[in-house]
Design a protein around this nucleic acid. Structure first.
Length: 751
DNA sequence: GAGTTTGAAACT
DNA sequence: CAGTTTCAAACTC
C-alpha cells in the first residue's frame, strides 16, 4: 500500500477528483483523430514552418485511431478478460489497416468513452491515467507523439489495472506478471498495429515498464537511465540484438542524453514520454525500479523480450516506418530534438492545409538521416547471422514484409522469424555499407544522404552554413552532428538567424529553396525541349558545366538524375540522363532502358497478381501518386512517398510521408534499400549488373521532386515496370524492385 | 586524408 | 546581365 509506486501515484494523484472535471477529461472524452493533429503544436521548439511536417506524419488518423483503439481494447481486456475478442479485433485491424481509417475513426470516437469509463471504474488507475494525461497534455497531448505517450500511458495503466491497482509489490508482481504475459500475448497484435511511426513506442513501453528487461539485457542497472535515454531506434536495435543473442550496446548513451536534453528544449514527445517514466524511475528510483523489477520475473522478462522482439519484428516489418515514417517519429525523437529542421519557408501555408502533402522537409530529412544511421547499425548486427536468410528469401522478402507487416501470425511465431525479417530488411542495404571503414562506404554514406539528401551533411567552413553553399541549409534542414561544418549557424539555436537568412536569400531568389529539380508535368508540352530528355524531371535552372560534360556529380542535373534541358548552358553535354540537345541515353543505358521496358511488361503481369496484396497498401495511400518516370520502379516509389512535397528537393520527398501508410511500410524496406544504395553515375556503372538498381536512387531523387508526383499520366507510366537487368542484380535489390512493381499497379494514376 | 577540380552561389 | 570571387562538394591521388 505504501509502496513507492503507490506513494508516487498517490502524491501525484491527489487531484484525482480534480481531473474528473478538469479539461483533461474533456479532452479525453473529446478525443478524436483530429485532435492529435491539432496538438501538433507540440513541437514548440520547431519553427512553425517545420511544424507542418510533423502533422502529416504523426497525425495520421490511422495511427492515432489505432493506438486509441488499442488502448481501449486492451483496457477492456484486462478488465473483462476479453483478450480473445480483442486479439481478434486487433488482427482484423492489422489486416485491414489500410482500409480502416473509417473504422479507426469510429474507434477513436469510442476511445474517449472507453477511457473515461476505465478511469471511473478504477480509481487508482484513473488517478494514474489522469496523471499521465495531464503530463501528456502538459507537453502537448495533441501532437502525434502525444498519442505515443498515451500509448505508453495506457500500458502503464494496464499495469496499474492490476487487481489492486496499486497494491503491494508482491501482488503486483504476480498480477502483473500474469497480466504481462497476457498482455504480451495479446499485445503482439497491438504492437503491430501500433507500428505506426511511433512503433518504437511499444518497445519503449516495454522497457519502461519492465526495467528488468534492461537489466537482463546487461544494461546498466540504472534502467531508468537506459529507459530514459533509449531512443526508439536504439531500443529497436537492442531488441534486434537481443533476438540475435547479442548484447545491446549502450555506447550511444551519451548521445542519447544529449538528445534528451535537446528534446527537452523542444518539448519533443519522445522526451515527454521519457520524462514521465524517468520521473517514475529516477525520482522514485529505488521504489519504482524495485517495484518494477519485482513485477517482472525474469521468465516474464524473457518472454516479454521475445515477444517484444517479435513485435518489434512486426514493427520491423513496418520497420520501414522506422526509416521513413520514423522520419517523423522515432528517428525524430532522436534527431528532431537535436536537429530541428529548418522549416521550409513555404511550408507554413501547406502545413495545415495538407499535412500529408507537405511535411516539413527539413525535419524529415534529418530524421531520415538518423534513421539511416540506426538502420545501418542494426544491419551490421543482424547481417552476420542473417545474411543467408536474405538470399533465400530476398525475393519474397519484400512481399512478405509488405503483406505481413501487419499480421501477427508471425508475431506469434518465434522471434527468429522476426529477426529474419529484420535482417532481411537490413540486408537490403548496400553491402558496402556493412563495411564502415571502406572509403567507398563513406562516400556512399554521403550519397545516401542524398537519398538522402535527408542525410545531408555539410562541411562548410566559411559560409557558416547560412548560404546555399551549405547543402544542409539549402535543403532546409539544420546541420546535424554528422556535419563537419565550422562556425555553424544552421542550428536550432540560431533559428532566428537561419530564418532571417533564408528570407533574405528568398528575397533575392524566391525559388532559392525550391526544389532544384522539377518534374516536367504532362501539362507541359511534351514537345517542350526540356521534355526531350529521358527523364521527365528537369533541373530548374539547368547546369553550367563545362568540363565535366555533365557526367559527374559536379553537374546538378546529373546529380539529380535528370537530363539536361534547354535551360542548361553546359558545354559538351553528355548527361547520361539526357542531353540538352535532346539525345537521351547513352548507349548502354538505352539498351538498359529498353530492357527495362520489356521487363516492365513482363512484370506487369506479376504486378497484377501482386496487386491484390498491395491493394491494401494502395488503399492506405490513396493520395499517393504514381510516378511514371522512365527510370524505373524506384521513381514510382519515390513519388508515392513524397509526391506533394514541393519545398525541398527530392531528398525531402523521401522523408515525406504521406501519412502513414502501411503501404509505406511495405515499400519502406524497398525504399530504404534503395535509399541506402549509393547513387552511382550511370555511365560509370552502366555495365554493372546492378546498374539499374544503383540508378534508382538517383532517379528517385530526381523524380522524387514534388512535381513528379503529379505526373502520373505521363507516357512513362508504363515504364514503371521493374528495372531491366534487375534480375541479375542482388536479391535484395530485386526484392525491392518487385515491391515497387507490385505497388505501382495498385496505385491509381493521378491524372 | 590531403590536395585538386569543378561549378554553383555570391558578389561586384 | 556579365564577370569575378568565394565556397564547398566531388573527385583524384
Amino acid at each position: 500500500m505504501d509502496t513507492p509506486e503507490r506513494t508516487q501515484i498517490g502524491s501525484s494523484s491527489t487531484p484525482i477528483s480534480k481531473y474528473e472535471d478538469s479539461p483533461v477529461f474533456n479532452y479525453i472524452n473529446n478525443l478524436s483523430p483530429i485532435k492529435p493533429v491539432k496538438s501538433i503544436h507540440v513541437t514548440q521548439a520547431f519553427s512553425s514552418l517545420t511544424f507542418s511536417s510533423l502533422p502529416s506524419i504523426f497525425t495520421s488518423p490511422q495511427v492515432t485511431s489505432i493506438k486509441e483503439s488499442w488502448f481501449l481494447r486492451r483496457h477492456q481486456n484486462l478488465e473483462s478478460s476479453k483478450l480473445k475478442s480483442l486479439s481478434v479485433d486487433v488482427e482484423t485491424m492489422s489486416n485491414n489497416e489500410g482500409t480502416q481509417d473509417e473504422a479507426d475513426l469510429q474507434e477513436i470516437s469510442q476511445a474517449g468513452i472507453s477511457i473515461a469509463s476505465a478511469s471511473v471504474e478504477q480509481p487508482g488507475e484513473r488517478a494514474e491515467f489522469a496523471i499521465e494525461l495531464s503530463r501528456t497534455l502538459k507537453y502537448d497531448c495533441g501532437s502525434p507523439d502525444c498519442c505515443t505517450n498515451q500509448d505508453i500511458d495506457l500500458q502503464r495503466v494496464d499495469a496499474i489495472d492490476q487487481p489492486e491497482g496499486n497494491a503491494n509489490h508482491g501482488d503486483n508482481q504476480t498480477g502483473k506478471g500474469c497480466d504481462w504475459e497476457g498482455l504480451v500475448v495479446s499485445d503482439t497484435p497491438d504492437l503491430l498495429i501500433l507500428s505506426s511511426p511511433n512503433d518504437a513506442e511499444a518497445f519503449r513501453g516495454i522497457f519502461q515498464n519492465s526495467p528488468g528487461l534492461a537489466i537482463g539485457l546487461g544494461v546498466s542497472p540504472s534502467s531508468s537511465f537506459f529507459q530514459n535515454n533509449m531512443t526508439n531506434v536504439q531500443q529497436m536495435q537492442l531488441f534486434f540484438q537481443v533476438g540475435l543473442g547479442k548484447e545491446p550496446e549502450m555506447g550511444d548513451a551519451s548521445q542519447n542524453l544529449e538528445i534528451r536534453n535537446t528534446q527537452e528544449d523542444h518539448g519533443s514527445d519522445d522526451l515527454e514520454s521519457v520524462e514521465i517514466y524517468s520521473t517514475d524511475g529516477l525520482e522514485n528510483e529505488s521504489a519504482a525500479l524495485e517495484s518494477l523489477d519485482k513485477m517482472k520475473a525474469l521468465s516474464n522478462l524473457q518472454r516479454g523480450m521475445r515477444r517484444r522482439c517479435l513485435d518489434f519484428e512486426m514493427v520491423g516489418g513496418h520497420k520501414c516506418k522506422i526509416l521513413c515514417d520514423s522520419s517523423s517519429s522515432h528517428s525524430e525523437n532522436k534527431i528532431n530534438s537535436k536537429n530541428l529542421q529548418l522549416p521550409p519557408v513555404n511550408n507554413n501555408r501547406r502545413s495545415q492545409s495538407s499535412r500529408c502533402i507537405v511535411p516539413g522537409i527539413g525535419l524529415h530529412l534529418n530524421s531520415l538521416a538518423l534513421a539511416k544511421r540506426d538502420y545501418k547499425v542494426i544491419k551490421c548486427d543482424t547481417l552476420s547471422s542473417e545474411t543467408q536468410v536474405l538470399n533465400a528469401s530476398d525475393q519474397e522478402l519484400l512481399p512478405q514484409t509488405m503483406i505481413s507487416s501487419a499480421p501477427e501470425k508471425e508475431a506469434d511465431e518465434s522471434g527468429d522469424i522476426l529477426v529474419e525479417d529484420t535482417s532481411q530488411a537490413l540486408v537490403l542495404m548496400n553491402p558496402e555499407e556493412l563495411n564502415p571503414s571502406s572509403p567507398r562506404k563513406k562516400r556512399h554514406k554521403v550519397e545516401h544522404g542524398v537519398e538522402g539528401e535527408a542525410c545531408k551533411r555539410c562541411n562548410c567552413k566559411k559560409s557558416k552554413c547560412l548560404k546555399l553553399y551549405c547543402e544542409c541549409f539549402a535543403a532546409g534542414v539544420y546541420c546535424t552532428e554528422p556535419c563537419a561544418c565550422q562556425d555553424c549557424f544552421n542550428k536550432p539555436i540560431h533559428e532566428d538567424i537561419v530564418l532571417a537568412t533564408r528570407k533574405h536569400i528568398e528575397s533575392r531568389n524566391p525559388l532559392a529553396f525550391a526544389p532544384k529539380v522539377i518534374r516536367c508535368s504532362d501539362t507541359v508540352d511534351v514537345a517542350d525541349e526540356s521534355m526531350k530528355t529521358p527523364a521527365s524531371a528537369r533541373h530548374k535552372r539547368g547546369c553550367n558545366c563545362k568540363k565535366s560534360s555533365c557526367l559527374k556529380k559536379y553537374c546538378e542535373c546529373y546529380q539529380s538524375g535528370v537530363g539536361c534541358s534547354v535551360n542548361c548552358r553546359c558545354e559538351g553535354c553528355k548527361n547520361a540522363f539526357g542531353t540538352k540537345d535532346g539525345s537521351i541515353l547513352v548507349g548502354p543505358e538505352c539498351a538498359a532502358e529498353e530492357e527495362e521496358a520489356e521487363k516492365s511488361e513482363k512484370t506487369e503481369h506479376d504486378a497484377i497478381t501482386l496487386k491484390r496484396e498491395n491493394s491494401r497498401m494502395e488503399e492506405q495511400v490513396p493520395s499517393a501518386n504514381l510516378p511514371s518516370t522512365p527510370s524505373g520502379l524506384s521513381r514510382p516509389l519515390a513519388h508515392l512517398v513524397f509526391p506533394l512535397s514541393k519545398v525541398n528537393p527530392p531528398r525531402t520527398s523521401f522523408l515525406t510521408k504521406n501519412g502513414s501508410s502501411i503501404v509505406l511500410k511495405g515499400s519502406q524496406k524497398l525504399r530504404t534499400d534503395e535509399f541506402l544504395l549509393p547513387p552511382q553515375p550511370k555511365l560509370e556503372k552502366l555495365l554493372q549488373p546492378k546498374n539499374a538498381e544503383d540508378e534508382m536512387p538517383e532517379i528517385l531523387r530526381g523524380s522524387s521532386t514534388p512535381n513528379d508526383g503529379i505526373k502520373m499520366a505521363s507516357p512513362n507510366c508504363k515504364r514503371v515496370s521493374p528495372p531491366h537487368g534487375e534480375l541479375g542484380s542482388s536479391p535484395s535489390l530485386r526484392s525491392g524492385r518487385r515491391l515497387i512493381l507490385q505497388s505501382i499497379p495498385s496505385f491509381p494514376s493521378l491524372t
